[in-house]
Amino acid sequence: MLLRSIKDGVRSVFRNFSLSTASILCSTITLILVAVAMVLSANVDNFTKKIEDDMTIVVFLDSKATKEEVENIKTQIENLDNIDEDEIVYKTKAEVKMEMQSESAIFNTVMGDWNDDTNPLKDTFQLKVKDIEQINKTAKEIEKMDKVSTVQYGEGIVEKMVGAFKWIERIAYGTVLALILVTIFLIINTIKLTIFSRQKEIEIMRLVGASNFVIKTPFIVEGMFLGLIGSVIPVLVVLFGYTTLYDVTKGYLFSPIIQLIKPTPFIYYTSGIIILIAMIVGMIGSARASRKYLKV
């Protein structure tokens, strides 16, 4: 029974060829836009996270701070909501010196003569924040703490950039949602027209005792199949288009800070999601249309 419904649904796509083609083309166009929006939002999300992960607040302590005072500052920092407690790194000025010496031969020579008393560097805390958009506020709170000398982070540009990326991401998500709704609407209309063109057949089916399941299932299958065909080109765009984009740009856009997601397995996940969206959208569209127009 189910097999026959599936067969009928698939056959109907070809039987109403012009109608199906119109619907498939519309779905294809909207799904390409959905795919582009998905790739964009995933990438924005990816490099925003990367930037956020690399973003560090460095707290320079007063050189006269005692051990108790340092502990006190640590406790206060830990108590801040926006600070990732697991990522707090404390370095004494001696450790900072050693680190700098190991990084550069010039530093090594210059700092070689410094001892604990003459070392002008300061003890530091290196911190990571949970919400990058709140970094300015958090830095200011730390600055106010007793025995904190200065607080530094990538002030200004980075947070503005991240803020802008978040907006791009939100717009991309909004676009994806809107386009999905448009696709549902298109499928509803196609199935509605199919139902109208087959009204006599449906009426006879009802009169000769076909159950609602038998009447409805071919339309649901038809919607899913329309969605599936409509997703072929968008999937190809993702598979080949994104790989080409990655190769041409060598993996980053404009600046090495904006890194693209590696094509594998990203393109396969995205293609899978597009196929799934297309079929679910087709199913929802046809289910809505058949409920509304079949009167079964």
Binding site: R206, V208, G209, N212
Partner: peptide, 19 residues
Amino acid sequence: NGKVYKLRRKLGIVFQDFK
């Protein structure tokens, strides 16, 4: 409504316009 088909399977209908 969902069970009407059970009744219709027990009867046959002949129409003026054949359908």
